[in-house]
Amino acid sequence: MLEVIGLVKKYGKANAVNDITFSLQGGEVVGLLGPNGAGKSTTMKCIVGLLRKTSGEIYIGGIDHMQVGAKKLFSYIPETPSVYDLLTVKEHMQFIAQAYKVDNWQEKSEVLFETYDLTDKKDKLGRDLSKGMRQKVSICCALLPDPQILFFDEPMIGLDPKAIRNTKRIFKELKEQGKTILVSTHLIDSVESIADRIMIMKDGNIVGNDTLENLKIQMKENDSSLEDLFLELTKDE
């Protein structure tokens, strides 16, 4: 569903992302972990086209990631949620529905509003929403078009415990439908229970990419938690 080949992103002479290659399959939830400055968000922004890659190839559903056909297949939830100040919550959904030609969008919106406790906020303007509410609106807008692949950059930050639980449930449901999810996060606990595979980045490189069980075997740390493995793989030499 996603293929990244030799991705490089340079800022001046420094490599923020250093010639990385990986792929994601349908029905797979992959956790992208790494310390600050590891290149997680840069990688994700290059994939979705918000940053221009220096070199490499990226394909979504077999289509070059910059083509319209590829962009129709995915949704992206940024780390800092961005909403339109003068649109209501409901109007955000209507805008997405018209852009993606979503049928029965009102009915789908109501289900999402109920899930994220936004039913009584649907007539509020974007400028009047708290950061947590903006995050919820951003997630609802991303889920509305029923994309094949979702890119979440720190999706749990700003969410209350109920919203976090519901988001994890939605991840599981999407996986069962064969959707692909890439989740970038600092919150190791939030991804350990939902990810089929873990990718760990350090200094623009992928230093681990496998199931949690296989990573434990590779590190000869069968009793270790994901946090222990993460700290071991990202420690300074």
Rank of each mutant, 00 (worst) to 15 (best):
M1A: 01
M1E: 05
L2T: 01
L7P: 10
K13L: 08
N15W: 07
N15D: 14
N15G: 09
A16L: 14
D19V: 03
F22Q: 02
S23E: 06
G27L: 02
E28S: 04
L33Y: 01
L33K: 05
L33G: 04
G34L: 04
A38F: 10
A38H: 09
G39M: 00
T42G: 14
L50Q: 00
L51G: 06
T54S: 14
T54Q: 13
G56D: 12
E57W: 08
I58P: 03
Y59I: 07
I60P: 03
H65M: 00
V68K: 15
K71V: 09
K72C: 12
L73E: 01
F74Q: 03
P78C: 01
E79G: 14
E79M: 04
T80Y: 06
Y84N: 03
L86Q: 11
L86T: 11
L86S: 15
T88S: 15
V89G: 09
M93A: 04
Q94A: 15
Q98N: 13
V102Q: 07
Q106S: 11
V111Q: 14
F113N: 04
D117M: 08
K122H: 07
L125V: 04
G126M: 06
R127E: 09
K131M: 08
M133A: 06
S138R: 00
S138K: 03
C140L: 00
L144G: 04
P147K: 02
P147N: 00
Q148I: 14
I149C: 05
I149N: 03
F151L: 03
M156F: 15
I157D: 13
P161T: 00
A163W: 01
R165Q: 15
N166K: 06
N166I: 08
K168I: 12
I170E: 01
E173Y: 06
L174T: 00
K175R: 06
K175I: 10
Q177W: 06
Q177F: 10
G178K: 03
K179C: 13
T180N: 10
L182H: 06
D189V: 09
S190P: 08
E192L: 05
A195E: 07
R197A: 06
I198E: 12
M199T: 02
M201S: 00
M201E: 01
K202Y: 13
K202C: 09
G204F: 14
N209G: 08
N209H: 10
K216I: 14
Q218Y: 04
Q218W: 02
Q218S: 09
M219E: 14
M219D: 15
E221H: 12
D223T: 11
D223K: 11
S224T: 12
F230Y: 07
L233P: 12
